[in-house]
């Protein structure tokens, strides 16, 4: 039975932001959007002990897993984010409801016989896309990382604690700068409200952007 997209409610949907969303910053220092649904997979494998894994992943996803800590590989549609020495988050821009289960199955099949774990976490996380010239200044109010342009560059991925007790993964996409922030689904409204307050503390206008 095919599933219907309209059944799904995104983590930030309860905030009803769609009505206020603008297409650009319009002078705001920071803008936040909730992008469309994505496939998010947690992949665990020891690359040095499972020599076939990189090729198998590449065959399915067209990208190789980054082996350098705190970095990502991929293109506009797919990313592999380094989460740990044997853990990656695969991000696929495929918003179909069944896509998470499908990609999980594909990847598991490709990795057959290799000791690994592929887990669908597409629904477990919220995604906030943060952009704007003040994004680094604003984020420095929420995370203890050094957000200076020389210290956190496009293509890097860092996991840290956001606000109080909320784990996040920050993926810097470009020099705008644009960050994709991944957090646990249940924390989405907290992260959004916290960012807004950080912008207030930085005396920067906060824009709600279209996803």
């Amino acid at each position: 039975m095919p599933e219907t997209t309209s059944y799904r409610q995104s983590p930030l949907a309860p905030l009803g932001l769609a009505g206020q969303a603008a297409s650009g910053l319009n002078g705001a220092g920071i803008g936040v959007a909730e992008p469309d649904f994505r496939v998010l997979l947690d992949l665990r494998v020891e690359l040095d002990k499972q020599p076939g894994a990189q090729d198998a992943v590449e065959k399915v996803l067209g990208l190789r897993l980054p082996e350098t800590a705190n970095t990502a590989t991929g293109n506009a549609e797919r990313h592999a984010l380094w989460l740990g020495p044997n853990e990656w988050q695969i991000v696929i821009h495929d918003s179909r409801p069944e896509a998470g289960r499908e990609w999980t199955a594909k990847l598991r099949e490709a990795l057959q016989g290799i000791f690994c774990a592929v887990v669908d976490v597409s629904n477990a996380q919220a995604i906030l896309r943060v952009t704007g010239p003040a994004a680094r200044e604003v984020l420095e109010r929420a995370v203890p990382l050094d957000m200076h342009a020389g210290k956190f560059q496009p293509g890097e991925v860092k996991q840290t604690v956001f606000g109080r007790h909320c784990g996040v993964t920050l993926h810097l996409l470009d020099d705008a700068p644009t960050f994709d922030i991944y957090c646990r689904r249940s924390f989405a409204e907290y992260v959004h409200a916290y960012l807004k307050d950080c912008a207030r503390g930085a005396c920067e206008d906060f824009a709600v952007l279209e996803g």
Partner: peptide
């Protein structure tokens, strides 16, 4: 700082919260 009031501690909500 800002960790007061509604932001005192994260509030985790289930998808059915609303």
């Amino acid at each position: 700082g800002r960790d007061v009031g509604d932001l005192f501690d994260p509030i985790r909500r289930t998808p059915m919260h609303s």
